[in-house]
Amino acid sequence: MLNLMRNEWMKLWHKKGTWVMVAILIVITAGMMALMKWISIQDSNFDNGSGLSVEVQAESIPDWHEGVQGDLASIQTRLADDSLTKSERKKLEGEEKVAEYRLANNIEPEDHFSREGMIKQPADIGGTVLLLTVIVAAGIVASEFSQGTIKMLLTRPVKRWKILTSKFLTVNLFGILLMVIGYIVYILLAMILFKSGTGQDLVWNGKEVVEASVWGQSLYMLLLSFGSVFVTSTFAFAVGSVFRSSSLAIGLSLFIYFTGTTISAMLSKYEVAKYLLFTHMDLTQFETGMMLVEDITMPFSLTVLAVYIVVFLVISYSTFVKRDVTA
């Protein structure tokens, strides 16, 4: 199996396209960071340049107190609602504790555009990695058919399921590698472009308010954003191996990726939305709180995703192993 994977890895990196993909990933990630920096500059210019005198600004510094107080008030009104589910209530109570703690101890919330703030949200690279991994996943089986090399590959004393497994593992290894490359570029630029902030990010751990771990949170978000990469590339891999057409596989996968959330949002009122793949693909929703469908939990999402993955792989393996190769 190791030799088969070495083969796939060798073939992958002998294609120019693969290197181009890495370059694209680096350029897009860097571009996104530059854009963020530009936006953050525009924002601060807007604050400074809105005709306020220095004295007024000095007075407006404790602004965050008002903000936090406003948040606290809205949390409390929502908490008064009896129709909240248990998990929602727990979450709001945690937020309430954090807000009270901030006001009591005079701790400023973290700026979104601070270095720490940036490091904590590396999920954006997931989108680029997803696009590139899908291209590789769609082509890794389909290209053997289109080049005609499938005949050479399957007339070896190696069972077909082993060949397919080596390809699937290689796709995922490639996805992970891209995530790591993207992450390194992202972190480096976050360090270079953004200043360390004065604020602190706080969380309620159930007993007390503690400072959130920057790197822990960062890696956790990275892991969650790999979820959609894994699911979408598995889908592309399955379509590519069943229909032997990489363009069909790329098209369908990206279609699902882009329209899936819309479909889920449209159906969110109905029970069926809970069992759609799209509803669960973005695992970062549990951290950002932007849930597509209410009252789903992480374990539930993981279960639904696992079922879909198994279905995709079963279809892919059974057709690949049984197929009569005539081309």
Partner: peptide, 14 residues
């Protein structure tokens, strides 16, 4: 078994 099936298609990029 050693096999040559029609035109031996190889990986052209290697």
């Amino acid at each position: 078994v050693g096999v040559i099936v029609e035109n031996p298609e190889m990986y052209k990029f290697m």
